[in-house]
Amino acid sequence: MVVSLSEFEVVGIELSANLKQIEEQQLAKQAYDSLLSRASEIEGRIGETVYLIQIYPNEPDFNPMVDAFTQVIGYQVSTAATVPNGMVAHQVPSSDYAQFLHKGLESELGRTYDYLYGQWLPQSGRQFGGYDFEVWDDRYQPERPENEIEVYVALKS
């Protein structure tokens, strides 16, 4: 399903690595745990939902398993008045997004991405907008089969 979302701002922890490093070194998990422990430092935070934003380099042969890309794990904020030390503010622009719901273990999320980028996007006639993001709300239970993660893939207009 394609949805239009207004811009929003996220404050959180930024890292740059490839998927292999992120998985083997548990970089995203470390950033997530750090974010949760420092949540009270983020002014203007809207709720408890965590956003994982993934920004990819504009390279024709980009391979996320080998090539580094940027991840921001954070909370949506009303305004980023003060960004806590060691964190960043990131603006997610207004855009059309392909919205999909991943159901199942987080370790199986790669299948959802394979479908999105390998089948849905080429068949949709739309072009990739350079980033995607995940929404980790009260349904986020990464180690449980009932886990649900909303995935949004930015589309060029």
Rank of each mutant, 00 (worst) to 15 (best):
D96K: 14
E43I: 09
V11A: 04
K156M: 14
V88M: 04
V2T: 09
E150V: 15
S16I: 08
G110T: 00
Q21G: 05
T79W: 09
F128P: 03
Y131L: 14
L35Y: 03
D33V: 12
Q76F: 10
N147S: 12
V88H: 03
E23R: 15
T49Y: 08
H102V: 05
Y51P: 00
R45V: 10
A17M: 05
Y56N: 06
S94G: 11
G125R: 08
E48W: 08
S78L: 09
F133G: 00
D67A: 11
Q123K: 12
Q71P: 01
S6Q: 10
H102D: 03
D33A: 15
L5I: 02
H102W: 08
G125Q: 05
I53A: 10
L35D: 00
L52S: 12
Q71Y: 06
I13R: 04
S107Y: 02
A68D: 05
E23D: 10
T112P: 05
T79D: 10
P84H: 05
Y75W: 08
S6E: 08
V2F: 07
R126W: 07
S37M: 11
N147M: 09
T79I: 12
E59M: 14
R111D: 10
L15S: 07
V92R: 09
V11R: 02
D61E: 13
L109M: 13
I22Q: 09
I42G: 01
A28R: 04
T70E: 07
F133W: 00
L105C: 04
H90Q: 13
V66Q: 13
E108V: 07
Y140R: 08
V135M: 12
Y140D: 02
I46K: 15
Q71D: 04
S78N: 06
Y115V: 03
K20L: 14
P122L: 12
Q30H: 09
E23F: 14
N18H: 11
Q26V: 07
E9G: 12
D33S: 14
A80V: 01
S4A: 09
P84F: 07
Q54A: 14
G44T: 01
N85T: 07
G125D: 01
L109D: 00
Q25T: 04
D138L: 12
P84Q: 05
W136T: 00
G129T: 01
E7S: 15
R38H: 12
Y32A: 10
Q123H: 09
Q76V: 08
Q123C: 06
T79C: 11
E134W: 11
G118S: 06
Q21E: 14
L15D: 01
S94V: 01
E59K: 15
G125S: 06
G74W: 05
E106M: 10
L15K: 04
V153G: 02
S16R: 14
A39F: 14
K20M: 13
